[in-house]
Amino acid sequence: MKHETLRQHIEGVYETKFWGQPCTCDPKLIETVFGDGRRLIYYTPLATRPNYYIVRVGSDWDDDVYMDRLEEVYEAIEADFGNADDSQYDPETGHSLEDWEQLEWPAFHDGGGCYGFTDWPERVISKRRARKLKKRGEDNIWRIRGSNQYRWKPALFGASARK
Results as ranks from 00 to 15, higher is better:
Lys17Asp: 10
Lys17Pro: 05
Trp19Glu: 13
Cys23Tyr: 00
Thr24Ile: 07
Cys25Pro: 10
Cys25Ile: 07
Asp26Tyr: 04
Asp26Phe: 03
Pro27Leu: 06
Ile30Gln: 00
Thr32Val: 08
Thr32Leu: 01
Val33Phe: 00
Phe34Thr: 01
Phe34His: 05
Gly35Trp: 05
Asp36Gly: 10
Gly37Trp: 00
Arg38Gly: 08
Tyr43Thr: 08
Tyr43Phe: 15
Tyr43Leu: 15
Thr44Asn: 09
Ala47Ser: 14
Arg49Leu: 04
Pro50Phe: 06
Pro50Cys: 06
Pro50Gly: 06
Tyr52Lys: 07
Tyr53Asp: 03
Ser59Arg: 11
Asp63Lys: 09
Asp63Ala: 13
Asp64His: 10
Val65Phe: 01
Tyr66Arg: 08
Asp68Ser: 12
Asp68Phe: 13
Leu70Glu: 13
Glu71Ala: 12
Glu72Leu: 11
Val73Asp: 00
Glu75Phe: 06
Glu78Leu: 02
Asp80Ala: 02
Phe81Leu: 04
Phe81Pro: 00
Phe81Trp: 07
Gly82Gln: 05
Asn83Pro: 01
Asp86Glu: 14
Gln88Gly: 04
Gln88Asp: 07
Gln88Pro: 00
Tyr89Pro: 04
Tyr89Trp: 14
Leu97Lys: 15
Glu98Gly: 10
Phe108Gly: 01
His109Arg: 11
Asp110Ala: 15
Asp110Leu: 04
Gly112Gln: 09
Gly112Pro: 02
Tyr115Lys: 05
Phe117Arg: 03
Phe117Pro: 03
Phe117His: 03
Thr118Phe: 06
Thr118Ile: 15
Asp119Met: 11
Pro121Phe: 13
Val124Arg: 12
Val124His: 07
Ser126Gln: 08
Lys127Thr: 12
Lys127Val: 04
Lys127Leu: 11
Arg128Val: 14
Arg129Met: 10
Ala130Pro: 14
Arg131Glu: 13
Lys132Phe: 08
Lys132Pro: 00
Lys135Ala: 13
Arg136Ser: 01
Arg136Asp: 04
Arg136Tyr: 01
Gly137Trp: 04
Glu138Asn: 06
Glu138His: 07
Asp139Lys: 13
Asn140Gly: 09
Ile141Phe: 02
Trp142Ala: 07
Ile144His: 02
Ile144Gln: 04
Arg145Ala: 12
Arg145Glu: 15
Arg145Asp: 14
